[in-house]
Design a protein around this nucleic acid. Structure first.
Length: 751
DNA sequence: AGCACGCCGACT
DNA sequence: GTCGGCGTGCTC
């Protein structure tokens, strides 16, 4: 019988076999999308293989074939199969990552079975929900309460988004509207700003000698008969990495090959895009989250047809259907946003290496502060290091100073975290009519509320993490992990004592303290509580217009664009980033310090950076102080190797050994997500000890005992865990579980 | 993941 | 009497 093995978008590891009816025999090819009857549903799947074979006991026939030319090329199909095998992710869901939004005609043919796409394609306006200043009279339970907390946390959001998160969001929003707690409205889906203005063409600048060497090496690799290779491009901001990317794309074109450029989420700015458009005109597909399904489909089709040969986008652009793929660039490869943490978990940097490798293409990993993984690739000979040492535009490095909080007392505010040196530096900056940025990685007023009588911390009932006190919006305690919210209680929940103390310093309090201490200065705050999405640019705009003297903020302040009048950058507490429960804490802190330091001083005005810390001897601080990236990498690699952390660890999984291989495979596939979470946490806390963060269903308690470890869960994983538990339970006595040290991915294994 | 089937509680 | 909650099992 002629059979098609089809990957369907269901969370199951295997493909499903369908009979190919004679009328579809010619068009049913590998990579083509097909319409299948599946249970009572109709689904669109992808043909993974097709051919003569033994039919399974139950076979249905394919209903239709959607493509004359297969939607997925052999190259993309093979890559997706590799990705699925590597991450133990269901093949059908992986395929879906690379499929275009379904055309209107097809959607109609599918009737109401694909409501998602119908909804998406017709949405020109979206309904929005925004919080009001009004406070509820009594605590709201259930979905209404959760939705209210969410809307307050993220600001104006779309109803569609809320419906995706909560089943009866529409009803709850109606109720909240009646109570006056939220308002609803609608807005145009934002138009594509990237192509609003025509970009003036530029002419390629002269290359610096190091740039020329880098371009030469990449072009040679692209042109070689058995081409390919991975390059680690190491260069500070302003050293001209982008010019190397542009030349590499040109070199790929000369070989009739297409390119993909991956950038971190926040880096996909009009400035960056116009840089590419200036060189290549409008022959560039910009894939971003603001694209309507219709526009996304147009981009997808033009790439698939070979009309466009360059795709730029965040993480998901990795799956762009670029023809004859020859080059993948990962810019700012150390950025954590390349790691997809929800749904199908993958690391776009690692997968970029894999896809380029399998396509016999070139992968460029660019960064000023390379990840340990990339550095390890270079050192083990699996990537070629290219260094751009010169700053194309010579800028003086800012003077970085340490404020040792063990020795330095508080300034006039009396708050230890605004030390005397920092206070004086702020005074000086203000006197010179310059601007300051203060970085503090904790939003809210106080990160913890403690009972002074019994020592109990107010913590989240479902996440057991400390609740943060927010002063604005009515003195509330909020969980920064799950958005749980409650009013500040009058008494300790445990001992009923009224002696509750606000501990620690958040951006909200810092802003307030500074506003009092410097009444003549304009102090503003930039964090997720005051700025959602587009409003970040508004705050940065006010900063550029010098309407703000001191800007206090979280991570967000490190990512902004040019702020030429900032001459002082203060890091309030470098130890906060260093003590995060994450084996990458030192690495992230180092990136952060180098990045934030880069904010100070531009052009002729020398900048000044003050880093406040209790651990001035920490390598991340010492090396950030000297701008010495290589020394930091060297040191951190040694530590990682000793501890067996990535990039030296092997991929580990919760292994299920079972005499029946199919059962074992199924259990493994189901465990994959949990394994990944457990793995990360295990690497932080040591094998076998993983924290529970998140509401735990009753079966979890049993799982904990049986596996002798605890699992960190996000709500979406709970259903899967329940199933897993069942599968394990069923095979009780025959299943042997081994929990190896299960950690991150080692990209070295891919090559 | 959906979706059907099925079995128990509070409403017209 | 039935509407609707979610537990259980299945999908070529």
């Amino acid at each position: 019988m002629l059979l098609a093995h089809v990957a369907l978008p269901v969370p199951m590891a295997h493909t499903f076999s369908y009979e190919i009816p004679a009328r579809l025999a010619g068009r049913t090819r590998q990579g083509a999308r097909v319409l299948c009857s599946f249970g009572s549903r109709r689904l669109v799947g992808v043909v993974v293989t097709a051919g003569e074979g033994e039919p399974p006991p139950k076979v249905k026939a394919l209903l239709d074939v959607l493509d004359d030319e297969p939607a997925l090329t052999d190259e993309l199909l093979a890559f997706l199969r590799d990705l699925s095998a590597y991450y133990l992710a269901p093949i059908g869901e992986v395929m879906r990552l690379a499929l275009p939004p379904i055309e209107r005609a097809v959607a109609r043919a599918l009737e109401d079975s694909l409501f998602e796409t119908k909804k998406g394609i017709s949405a020109r306006r979206v309904q929005t929900v925004a919080p009001t200043e009004k406070l509820e009279e009594s605590a709201l339970g259930g979905q209404a309460g959760a939705i209210l907390a969410h809307v307050r946390a993220v600001g104006e959001t779309s109803l569609v988004d809320l419906e995706g998160r909560w089943k009866s969001a529409r009803a709850a929003v109606k109720k909240l509207t009646q109570l006056g707690l939220v308002t609803t409205g609608s807005r145009e889906v934002q138009a594509d700003s990237f192509f609003a203005a025509p970009a003036p063409r530029d002419s390629p600048p002269e290359l610096t000698p190091p740039q020329a060497i880098a371009v030469e090496a990449i072009a040679t690799a692209l042109a070689a008969p058995s081409s390919g290779g991975t390059f680690a491009l190491h260069g500070v901001t302003g050293s001209g990495k982008t010019e190397v990317y542009l030349r590499a794309i040109v070199a790929a074109r000369q070989q009739k090959k297409g390119s993909i450029v991956l950038v971190p989420e926040i880096a996909l700015t009009p400035q960056l895009v116009s840089r590419f458009r200036a060189r290549f005109g409008d022959d560039v597909a910009v894939l971003h989250s603001g694209l309507l399904p219709r526009e996304r489909l147009v981009m997808w089709k033009r790439l698939r047809a070979g009309e466009l040969d360059v795709a730029i986008g965040a993480r998901s652009a990795l799956f762009a259907p670029v023809r004859n793929l020859g080059l993948i660039v990962v810019d700012e490869e150390h950025d954590p946003s390349f790691k997809q943490e929800e749904g199908i978990r993958y690391h776009a940097r690692d997968m970029a290496i894999l896809r380029a490798h399998r396509a016999a293409g070139v992968c460029i990993l660019g960064s000023a502060t390379p990840s340990l993984e990339t550095e390890h690739l270079s050192r083990s000979g699996k990537a070629t290091k290219l260094v751009l040492p010169d700053r194309a535009r010579a800028q003086p490095m800012p003077a970085v100073e340490i404020v040792d909080l063990r020795r330095m007392g508080p300034g006039p505010t009396g708050d230890k975290r605004i030390s005397l040196p920092l206070h004086r530096a702020l005074e000086k900056t203000l006197a010179a009519r310059e601007q300051a940025i203060l970085f503090l990685n904790r939003r809210g007023f106080s990160p913890a509320v403690r009972c002074e009588a019994c020592g109990e911390l107010c913590s989240c009932p479902s996440c057991s993490v400390a609740l943060t006190f927010h002063k604005r919006h009515g003195e509330r305690l909020r969980c920064h992990y799950c958005d749980f919210e409650t009013l500040l209680p009058d008494n300790c929940v445990k001992c009923k004592s009224p002696a509750l103390a606000l501990e620690g310093l958040g951006t909200e309090k810092l802003e307030e303290t500074l506003a009092t201490a410097f009444p003549e200065a304009k102090v503003a705050r930039l964090d997720r509580d005051v700025a959602s999405g587009r409003t970040v640019d508004a705050v940065l705009g006010r900063m550029r217009a010098r309407e703000i003297d001191i800007l206090v903020g979280t991570q967000m302040v490190t990512k902004g664009h040019d702020l030429p009048h900032v001459t002082l950058v203060g890091v309030i507490n470098a130890d906060a980033a260093l003590s995060l429960p994450d084996f990458r804490a030192a690495e992230r802190a180092f990136h952060l310090l180098v990045q934030v330091a880069g904010r100070a001083g531009r052009g002729d005005v020398p900048g000044r950076v003050l880093i406040q810390t209790y651990t001035p001897e920490h390598p991340a601080i010492v090396h950030a102080l000297r701008h010495d990236v290589n020394a930091f990498l060297e040191r951190e690699l040694v530590d990682r190797r000793e501890l067996g952390y990535p990039p030296f660890s092997r991929v580990g999984l919760i292994r299920v050994d079972h005499p029946d291989e199919a059962t074992a495979r199924e259990a493994c596939a189901m465990l994959a997500n949990v394994a990944r979470e457990a793995a990360e946490a295990a690497s932080r806390e040591g094998p076998g000890r993983v924290a529970i963060l998140g509401p735990a269903p009753a079966p979890l308690a049993r799982l904990r005992q049986r596996f002798r470890f605890r699992v960190m869960l996000r709500s979406s994983d709970r259903a899967m865990l329940r199933r897993t538990l069942l599968a394990v339970e069923r095979a009780r006595g025959q299943v042997e579980r081994t929990v190896r040290t299960a950690i991150d991915i080692d990209p070295v294994q891919l090559l």
